[in-house]
């Protein structure tokens, strides 16, 4: 171990590198750039490439020839009557899965927002000790494995689940709402991502100057006005950021619909998983579906970031 010498020279090189702005930037930024390029951008680019080839239905091998077939299949050839307001069309399985996922994610996001707001607001008004206890009570479910939380709702819902059994014990039910299916999935997603919303909201509400609120009240503003004119604008970055953290993963959810849907609710995550490694085993078709999902998310993000700076979303 002639380490000291080598350590010293290594150290000297590092010091030299860090002393110059140019190399300092290189040393700090490069590893992350390489990681993102190799493990995020390259795979997404490759997935996009794969989505433009096909798979031989006989040998299940990929045929490396360009084709738009997978994209055509996503949108053409649907047979299920579907109406979106006044527009009626024949939806493919993919289109139905997209619409369903976006609808479920929207409801879960709104629920999270409506439910988290009072708690976040209350938390800003708590004393030190009460705050510590509350944040502990919020963080513990947050840190508890996602899978465990989804599973806990599996026990709650279902014909013989805790909710229906409890109702049965007092002579009511079983209630269809508490069966597995879309309502169970919405509750599961709301529970799963609620803490994201709460923490993001809290972080933005915490900056709220309550003397302003009091002043507004003294000046005769109604509660609704205070909330509308003072609290919401201040909390807006939190509301948008929190919604993002709930909405995007909800759209692509897999575990929750898989566990709480009993095979009857095909959200987009399930559809993609089935195509990627399920019985149909069609990588290019899975790739095409993924590309479209990514595109819709990117569009949504671009819209959001026109209004909020990413910096303000930090912390969650």
């Amino acid at each position: 171990m002639a380490a000291p010498d080598r350590d010293e020279s290594l150290r000297a090189t590092l010091v030299g590198a860090l002393s110059s702005d140019r190399t300092g930037l290189g040393v700090t930024a490069l590893p992350g750039a390489v990681w993102i390029a190799l493990l995020l951008l390259a795979p997404l680019a490759f997935m996009t490439a794969v989505s433009f080839v096909t798979r031989d239905p006989l040998t299940y091998q990929i045929v490396w020839e360009p084709s738009l077939e997978n994209y055509r299949d996503l949108f053409v050839g649907g047979t299920t009557e579907y109406s979106l307001g006044p527009v009626g069309f024949q939806a493919t399985a993919f289109e139905q899965a997209m619409l369903l996922s976006y609808a479920i994610a929207t409801v879960a996001t709104v629920l999270c927002l409506v439910l988290a707001f009072p708690l976040a607001y209350a938390m800003t008004r708590l004393g030190d000790r009460a705050f510590k206890v509350t944040i502990y009570l919020v963080l513990l479910p947050f840190f508890t494995m996602y899978l465990v939380r989804a599973y806990s709702w599996r026990l709650m819902f279902g014909g013989s689940g805790v909710l229906n059994q409890a109702l049965g014990a007092v002579g009511v039910g079983p209630v269809g709402l508490f069966e597995y299916g879309v309502p169970a999935i919405i509750v599961g997603l709301t529970h799963a991502y609620f803490p994201y919303m709460l923490i993001t909201l809290y972080a933005s509400l915490d900056g709220l100057d309550f003397s302003l609120v009091e002043a507004a009240r003294d000046l005769g503003a109604s509660r609704v006005d205070v909330v509308k004119d003072h609290i919401v604008p201040l909390a807006l970055p939190g509301i948008i950021g929190g919604s993002l953290f709930v909405f995007v993963p909800s759209v692509g959810a897999f575990i929750t619909p898989q566990i709480l849907g009993l095979g009857t609710v095909q959200m987009i995550g399930i559809l993609i998983e089935r195509r990627a490694i399920g019985a149909a085993s069609n990588a290019p078709a899975a790739g095409a579906a993924s590309v479209i999902v990514v595109l819709t998310i990117v569009v949504a993000l671009l819209v959001v970031f026109r209004y909020v700076d990413l910096d303000e979303l930090g912390g969650a």
């Binding site: 995020l40 490759f46 997935m47 993963p249 959810a253 993609i272 490694i277 999902v293």
Partner: peptide, 12 residues
């Protein structure tokens, strides 16, 4: 932010 299914499929 990217859905886990998509990151997983892409990396696979």
């Amino acid at each position: 932010i990217i859905p886990g299914v998509i990151l997983g499929v892409g990396l696979r």
